[in-house]
Computed example of a mutant assay.
Amino acid sequence: MFPISDDNSRPGTPYVTWGFIAACVLVFLWELSLPDKALEAVFYRYGAVAAQLTGTGEQAMGAPAVNVSGDWSTLVTSMFLHGGLAHIAGNMLYLWIFGDNVELAMGRVRFFLFYIACGVAAALAQIWMSPASAFPMIGASGAISGVLGAYLMLYPYGRVRVLILPFPIIILRVIEVPAMLVLGFWFVLQLLSGLFSNPAEPGVAFAAHVGGFLAGMILVLVARQPGVPLFEKPRPRSPWERRRRGPWG
């Protein structure tokens, strides 16, 4: 079940969401221009390395000695680095789908601060789970997880178009399901994956995903604009909307 769009249009322009996407894409294009050794040095310098921040553990074998011990600003800079095309494409798709509605519910300044706070909280959750990890943590997924948590609190009944591959009929289909189902399934998947993985090893930072999601659910309580309700009820759909299919199917 892979989300590709939502049917939850709101009046306004999500400039901050677009800005975060643009920043991540521009940084990624810069990464592509670097040779492998230089890119590795960037990851270790601007990624969040738990062992460096906590003063525990040892440097990863063969890692460049470029970290600045105790540089907590890497909790923010790490959000704009990505390890490959699939990494950034998946993150930016989720931010594109869910970020606009959350931003419009909070306002630009609040959403900017909310996004950064969720990213920091997500990184701290991963560091708490593995304080001696010597591998750099990079990616916007922790902050985006916070956006998903906020979306669940604001629009649990919002309709999300997802791509599915039903078995045994191997035919791609697009269906609409409530956001609570999509995001709830995503959260449970992250939680279970985290339980069966070693946070000290390189790979997906499941603890960051869980931590960011929970932070988003909590912070939206104070970050949303006055008058914006939680758990918004589904709006009635016209017959035309019920018949209409999106651009993906």
Rank of each mutant, 00 (worst) to 15 (best):
Q126N: 05
Y115Q: 06
D7E: 11
S9L: 13
A105T: 06
F43T: 01
A150P: 05
F231D: 08
V210R: 07
F213R: 08
A150R: 08
S78E: 01
L221D: 04
G19T: 13
F20R: 02
V188I: 15
F206C: 02
Y15T: 15
V228G: 09
G158V: 05
E40D: 14
T74S: 04
G19F: 10
F2E: 11
T17F: 06
A51F: 00
T56N: 09
W18C: 15
Y46L: 08
A132H: 10
I97A: 02
G184Q: 08
A48R: 04
Y115N: 08
I97L: 02
L221C: 11
G158C: 05
L95P: 02
T56P: 02
Y157I: 02
V210D: 07
R110H: 11
M153V: 10
F231K: 04
L81V: 00
F187Y: 15
A51R: 00
A63V: 03
D36A: 15
L53M: 02
Y46Q: 01
R244Y: 05
G19Q: 08
A121K: 07
L75Q: 04
E176Q: 13
D100M: 13
A140Q: 11
L195G: 08
E31Y: 05
T56M: 13
V222R: 12
S238K: 07
G212Q: 07
G249H: 02
A60T: 07
A215N: 12
M106E: 09
P3H: 02
F80N: 00
N8M: 10
